[in-house]
Amino acid sequence: MKQTVSILVENHAGVLSRVSGLFSRRGFNIDSLAVGVTDDSSVSRITIVVDGDDYMLEQVEKQLNKLIDVIKLRTLPQDEIISRELMLIKVTAKSDARGDIMDIAKIMGAKISDITTSTMTVEIADTAERLQTMLDLLAPYGVKEVVRTGTIALQRGGESITVQK
């Protein structure tokens, strides 16, 4: 079962290696990991998608909480999250394929970010599932390169995870 864990951490060197080291050491499987600074420059937010059962998730939460650099964390309820991932796909696109690829991009809410005589680079920000659909749709044209940021997520509604000042 996939779970999304949001972690607020101190924004300084070495924190990411502590978090990722803990996952490898304890045998927790990370599907994706994304990190960036928050509105408070002393705090970074890490979003981790883990794959495991309830026991593992409980251990993930408890072990992460033991890290001094972890200020707060929450597992976001799977049915209440807004999740997004950014993907760039460079696809083979001779002139005869361009129209089709642009149609797909339009339907999927993606953007053409770059174009050459033989390739197009498509940019899409959506859920992990939708990104997979996009990849499947573009596969027949010949995917040359793919890069993804990993999922970031917020909980729907008014609730938020914040650091007390």
Binding site: A13, G14, S17, R18, G21, I68
Partner: peptide, 14 residues
């Protein structure tokens, strides 16, 4: 050393 000892410390500082 902070990297090498990481799994065995409660916390560390460089």
């Amino acid at each position: 050393i902070t990297g090498a000892a990481e799994p065995f410390v409660k916390h560390s500082y460089l």
